[in-house]
């Protein structure tokens, strides 16, 4: 039985192949093997959302998925979303609204918020709160984060979805 497996993942558009330990989490693979340290480790058991990344276009917990489970799939991290400009509007809103202090949760917050922007751009404040409830922040008390997401969704609606 194999304890290490050849694993190929397309990360932020680039195909990478590594031999990985079966026990390695996806987020560890990204951080340790690829040096993509934007996705953070918080609780390491699926509660805090700091490790949120996208797999095949859908957000997942990077600590509740093994790297081998992502074999053959497409992964997007905060680095990819940031570099492509996909979340520029959200980033600006987070800045404007002081939606971060220490910044540890911010990559996960932005990944979750962008998922909402893509799936329910007309979300109400209550829906924003519900959607973001899987991401913990220990600094802001959340109001500024909800304000920022609300701002970004509104702005995006005004510019017809263009950022």
């Amino acid at each position: 039985m194999e304890h290490t497996l050849e694993t190929t993942i397309t990360v932020n558009g680039t195909r990478v192949t590594r031999r990985v330990s079966a026990r390695q989490h996806l987020v560890d693979f990204l951080r340790e093997e690829l040096g993509l340290t934007g996705a953070h480790y918080g609780c390491e058991h699926g509660v805090c959302g700091a490790c949120t990344v996208r797999v095949d276009g859908e957000i997942v917990r990077g600590c509740l998925m093994l790297a081998v489970q992502a074999n053959g799939r497409t992964v997007d991290t905060i680095e990819g979303l940031s570099d492509s400009g996909e979340i520029a509007g959200l980033q600006a809103a987070f800045h404007r609204r002081n939606a971060l202090q220490c910044g540890f949760c911010t990559p996960g917050m932005l990944m979750a918020a962008q998922d909402l922007a893509r799936t329910r751009p007309d979300a109400t404040r209550e829906e924003i709160r519900e959607h973001m409830s899987g991401n913990y922040c220990r600094c802001t008390g959340y109001h500024a984060i909800v304000d920022a997401v609300e701002d970004a969704l509104k702005q995006s609606a005004q510019t017809g979805g263009k950022r």
């Binding site: 957000i59 917990r61 899987g134």
Partner: peptide
Amino acid sequence: ARHIAHVAIRNV
């Protein structure tokens, strides 16, 4: 369905 954890977990 919407009571099950969070979207990132429901996706998997």
